[in-house]
């Protein structure tokens, strides 16, 4: 009898141990970040500091914006986004966030850009804080980054919904431009925020051009952000000019468009003569709204596509992050 009691007790204890172990194993989260590192978290993240505003926006899109407890100074100035981050306080600048402020918030992890980690990254590592590089800004890595964030926060369904939304518009573009023959692919000069700061190979718009069938004249220069001479732009005489800007209350995308159209020397360019100059808000060049940027760029390159980028923004606004559809995104309206 005693033996039976002992056996039953032992079996129950064993089951309890195995059960506990299985539960722990099930709760453990594993995913790969943008930098290619395998990240393991003991559980779904509940509190994070986001030094990456694009990742913060994706978190809002996934319905977990309230888990962002710290952001950078520049994110704090983004009123549209901050409306969705009720718990977030400033932890300092993106390149040198305050370790003390971060420690005070007791986050499960810090989300950073893979290409631009903070300069004091070693301090955070020493303090035992997990740093996760999830860009969420390149159109080419958006899908995997969003999927990783979905796993990190237990929001896989919403992540899948966003990925589906993203891919459906992307496929529409891919399909729309597939019939365009190579000799009809236009040459494009893409200029960044400052004059003659071209967007070269692997920059945001360059990646969009490769999907939307456009030839970036600066991609062959080898640099991501080459500062080119004005006369080179004249010599290239691109068919289309795309200018990326950060519109403000004082300077709208339309003002920027007028500036490009009247820039000294540009009057000889075919793009200016044909009014094939397009200005796009930097928020559409990178980040979760970049799918609307891709649609705008594709439409600018191939007017026959007849896809309205505003539809993308309205859908994004309705399904993921509200208050994002009526901002000054581009000029001219297509």
């Amino acid at each position: 009898m005693k033996e039976k009691i002992f056996l039953i007790t032992f079996s129950m204890l064993l089951l309890a141990c195995v059960g506990t172990f299985c539960t722990a194993a099930a709760a453990e989260i594993q995913f790969t970040d943008t930098a290619g590192s395998l990240i393991t978290l003991p559980d779904i993240a509940q509190r994070v500091v986001c030094l990456n505003s694009d990742a913060a926006e994706v978190m809002v899109a996934l319905g977990v914006g309230d888990r962002v407890v710290g952001v950078t100074d520049s994110t704090m100035r983004d009123n549209a986004l901050m409306a969705h981050l009720p718990q977030a306080v400033s932890v300092g600048t993106w390149d040198t966030p305050s370790l003390e402020n971060v420690l005070k918030l007791d986050p499960d992890a810090i989300i950073i850009y893979s290409s631009s980690p903070p300069k004091n990254v070693a301090l955070f590592e020493t303090a035992g804080i997990k740093l996760i590089a999830l860009d969420c800004y390149r159109i080419t890595t958006m899908e995997s980054d969003v999927a990783a964030l979905g796993m990190m926060f237990g929001a896989e369904d919403k992540a899948a919904e966003y990925i589906d939304f993203f891919n459906s518009w992307k496929e529409m573009i891919t399909l729309g431009v597939s019939a365009i023959p190579d000799d009809e692919i236009p040459t494009v000069y893409v200029e960044g925020y400052t004059e003659y700061a071209a967007q070269g190979v692997n920059s945001g718009i360059d990646l969009m051009l490769s999907i939307a069938k456009g030839t970036n004249i600066a991609s062959e220069l080898g640099e991501q952000w080459p500062k080119v001479t004005p006369e080179w732009v004249l010599m290239q005489d691109p068919a289309i000019i795309i200018k990326v800007c950060s519109p403000t209350d004082e300077v709208s995308t339309e003002d920027v468009w007028n500036n490009v159209m009247t820039r000294e020397g540009f009057e000889v360019l075919q793009a200016v003569q044909n009014e094939d100059v397009f200005v796009i808000n930097g928020d559409l060049a990178y980040g979760p709204r970049s799918i609307a940027g891709l649609v705008y760029v594709a439409q600018a390159l191939h007017l026959s596509l007849d896809i309205d980028p505003t539809d993308v923004l309205l859908e994004y606004d309705e399904r993921f992050v509200s208050g994002m559809s009526d901002l000054d995104y581009f000029s001219p309206y297509l």
């Binding site: 006369e231 004249l234 005489d237 020397g265 009057e267 000889v268």
Partner: peptide, 14 residues
């Protein structure tokens, strides 16, 4: 008369 690209390069830029 509108300036040519060459004229702009010399007179406008360089």
């Amino acid at each position: 008369a509108p300036l040519s690209a060459e004229q702009i390069v010399i007179l406008g830029f360089r």
